[in-house]
């Protein structure tokens, strides 16, 4: 009975994993404006680079604008593109959710389709074509599902929380806790914030290892790979073997985590794809061809346990 429930949940979750929205290509000769939030993290920089590379590969003329964390700059850039009348579409990575109605209406009036990427907007969905983004809750569920499977539903987990209040941290925690709640043998015994920072991840893990009996910790779930890598250092310093004595699962799929997997120190990571450019360009092309699109397209979200599996999906 219990095994049946477990199998059901796991199969259900793994069914969701199938990476979605593989890039189709197309769009040659289009001019597309891309308003990016800024360059506040390495992931953001990778995201920008991926969009640029994809545009180049497709022969799309990409107009790039770095808003330096300012909505005013984003609105000004979009208005400038609309005024010049030379863009076929706009891709917007909004810095915050509110305050986009006017400029989205202006784009609609000008007949320029807008695709939202990454963070959300709270405007009426009719004002934009679609949103291409990751699903943080799904990432949390997936990490939990893998852990349930790997431990047969019996595991005391310590959680390295991201920045308190950020959607990425809160949603990953919610998805993770939701699945764990289905299994009486699964429990989060410690949860502390490491602010998504590698050195903080190490310090928090050190504290967990000092205050808990290490034998009582079966796994660590980190809200990003950086904190996981910090935690691995702490586990090694405490004389334990990461990924064996304490399982390690996290989110992001940055290159460093695959180095760690190669060394056998990390078990699994859930991809937070920076490759949103392809699906976004596909959405533009499909929209210009008159196709109807769903208002939400999820990208990434695959769970990987080896570099080979990840590379195979690229």
């Amino acid at each position: 009975m219990r095994f049946a429930k477990l199998a059901l949940v796991v199969s259900l979750l793994l069914a969701l994993v199938v990476p979605f929205a593989t890039a189709q290509g197309g769009g040659e000769g289009l001019t597309i404006g891309f308003s990016q939030i800024g360059s506040e993290s390495a992931w953001r920089t990778a995201f920008t680079d991926a969009v640029r590379a994809e545009a180049e590969a497709r022969g799309i003329n990409l107009l790039f604008s770095d808003a330096q964390q300012s909505q005013e700059n984003q609105i000004a850039a979009i208005r400038a593109w609309l005024a010049q009348g030379d863009v076929d579409a706009i891709i917007l990575a909004p810095v915050i959710a509110t305050g986009w109605d006017d400029v989205l209406e202006e784009a609609q009036d000008a007949g320029v389709p807008v695709v939202i990427v990454d963070r959300n907007v709270d405007s009426d969905p009719s004002l934009y074509v679609t949103r291409v983004s990751s699903d943080f809750v799904h990432e949390g569920r997936l990490a939990a599902a893998w852990l349930v499977q790997a431990t047969s539903g019996n595991c005391n987990v310590v959680e390295l929380y991201g920045t308190v209040g950020s959607a990425a941290a809160e949603d990953r925690h919610a998805g993770f806790a939701e699945v764990l709640g289905l299994f009486s043998g699964m429990e989060i015994i410690r949860s502390e914030t490491g602010d998504f920072v590698r050195s903080n991840g190490k310090q928090v893990m050190e504290s967990f290892l000092s205050s808990e009996d290490p034998a009582n910790i079966c796994a660590v779930f980190a809200h990003n790979d950086d904190m996981a890598i910090g935690a691995i250092e702490a586990i090694k310093e405490a004389g334990l073997v990461p990924a064996v004595d304490i399982l390690v699962v996290s989110v992001d799929a940055i290159p460093d985590i695959f180095d760690s997997m190669d060394a056998g120190e990390t078990n699994a990571t859930v991809e937070l794809s920076p490759f949103m450019g392809g699906p976004a360009f596909d959405a533009v092309v499909a929209h210009l061809n008159g196709e109807e699109l769903p208002k939400q397209i999820s990208v990434g979200g695959g769970l990987y346990t080896s570099r080979a599996a990840y590379d195979a999906d690229r």
């Binding site: 506040e40 993290s41 390495a42 602010d195 998504f196 920072v197 590698r198 050195s199 190490k202 950086d226 890598i229 910090g230 250092e233 460093d256």
Partner: peptide, 16 residues
């Protein structure tokens, strides 16, 4: 010290 601790330099968050 912070860079040595985790063998990396994060320009966005180091010392924030």
């Amino acid at each position: 010290i912070v860079a040595g601790e985790v063998k990396s330099a994060d320009p966005h968050t180091a010392g924030l």
